[in-house]
Design a protein around this nucleic acid. Sequence first.
RNA 1: CGGGGCGUAGCGCAGCCUGGUAGCGCGCCAGUUUUGGGUACUGGAUGUCGCCGGUUCAAAUCCGGCCGCCCCGACCA
Length: 582
Amino acid sequence: MRVSRYHMPTLKEAPKEAELASHTFLLRGGFIRQLAAGIYDFLPLGVKVLHKVSNIVREEMNRKGALEVLLPAVQPAELWQESGRWQHYGPELLRVVDRHKRDFCIGPTHEEVITDLARRDLRSYRELPVNMYQIQAKFRDEIKPRGGLLRGREFIMKDAYSFDADADGARKSYQAMYDAYCAIFRRCGLDFRVVEADTGNIGGSMSHEFQVVAETGEDYVLRCPSCDHTVNQEMAALRGPVDGAASADALGIPPFEPVHTPDQKSVEDVAAFLGVTTSQVVKTLICVADGEPIAVLLRGDHDLSDVKLRRALGATSVELADDATVEKVTGAIVGFAGPVGLKPTASGKKIRIVADHSVNGLCDIVVGANRDYYHFRHVVPGRDFQVEKFLDVRNALAGDPCPHCADGAYSLFRGIEVGHIFYLGTKYSAAMQCIFQDIEGNVKPMVMGCYGIGVTRIMAAAIEQNHDERGIKWPVPIAPFEAAVLALQVADPNVSAAAEKLYADLQAAGVDVLFDDRDQRPGVKFADADLVGIPFQIVAGARDLAEGLVEVKDRRTGTREKVPVGEAAGIVAQRVREAGGQ
RNA sequence: CGGGGCGUAGCGCAGCCUGGUAGCGCGCCAGUUUUGGGUACUGGAUGUCGCCGGUUCAAAUCCGGCCGCCCCGACCA
């Protein structure tokens, strides 16, 4: 491709909305343009990267026997009502009404559609297992799209769904996808980790995330260096109730008493005001679990993991109560909830009180007084209030003990989730009558799995991981072009002839090459090639050509070397191959 | 949804407080120049100042409403 005939609108200055490297360079390099919040146009360069990633995904999926399909973006509400998600998905599901007043949604995922497809055409165990996938745009009406392609509302995803006759087969299907995903991300040149994850509202019983290691990632991941256990922070368990080991000696502690805390709402404020540490303040979070309010006690310096709470309670949904509920339950404005003297619920039942293990064994603590602008101090758990049970519900932190080995301690890193696989079981197949007959003639629901990869998110993640101040340093397999030829003085016949030959030779060698044949200053070409992130650049200029040389630059390492013109194409073709190019 | 900010040329911004000719840099077009890391000079084109309404002789500027975008928080296969 010749730059003079290409559309590559690079920008010298970054649009002000871009904060992250990936967002900035994608915009500046002319890969994408924003159309609306979280919605982007893909320009020619962006599409090229998208295709390279998609092709890798496709190859690895096909290698595992998965079959490519293409499902509709617009889906009828009926299917979602069948699975129950029309009610449960919430405002993230973009719903539309057609001219006949029928309800539809723009698919945020395709479990319903694929399950419907499977139940119609798959009847016998002889036809299983089947794994079908597609690469297609999804829409999720995110509250807050951010970071360009990192969290858009419309994005491109590869989603696959497996159907097996039994759990054993389904586990094999799951493992095949696990392996395929590792191969895909490795081929994309990403530094990633496989992470144990929660299944969220998609359901199922086993799940792994594939996280690209990046400072700018939204997810927090804990990893134990001694046993390599790696898990999303929101569900990282802790080893035993070690926090509460110190036994309470309530004897010397005076009765609890109210203190006026007029302007102190946060734990930090209260601790500072009363001259105690934040770990001596116990915060009481009013949550709603499956519709019932529940009080959850946590040490002031800890955060709640709503995922761990949900799992510990065996609830299907857990959320923080809204202000009105908090006021009803505590009789005080938000910020002063405490375990002492909580009101019974509307139905007359006493509100349940649970606590994190770390609260066990604390004594002489500060808690909210369930009264506006008051706290209690010298409170002793067990003496002044009772806890129904102690649970592991706080977010694990770096340094916390790993539950899978005797002495390991978690370390923390941030990641960008680029893939997620779920062992679904029969959640959708049972709800939607996706059944088959086994060898004995029994009718059973199929055992499913689903597997997603954020294709557009890979683009962003790859940049977060591979860039410098000048621009992108694409890994060769997903770079928009593998090499560029920069003709520094197009008016000079020697230069243009040499550059044309290099261009032709590289093409003949199967290299995906961009030829900068514009009548521009050298600086412009260098800057654009670096910005756009072409891995290998051959610089053909009058100065070196006079000696029969051109310069070969490696964008990733920054090394430049002078080589004879005649050898340059061969050298670059060789390096492209070694780096995993086409 | 709560808090904050922004909306003026393709991009980055000034002008608004204190109402009166719409500006700067980059980019773009023409020409000259330059030719190994965004060259210099000359000339030029480009704006419903986000939208609607109000105040006023006069509104980018003041007032009201709406819309859009960004950031923080809550949310999130």
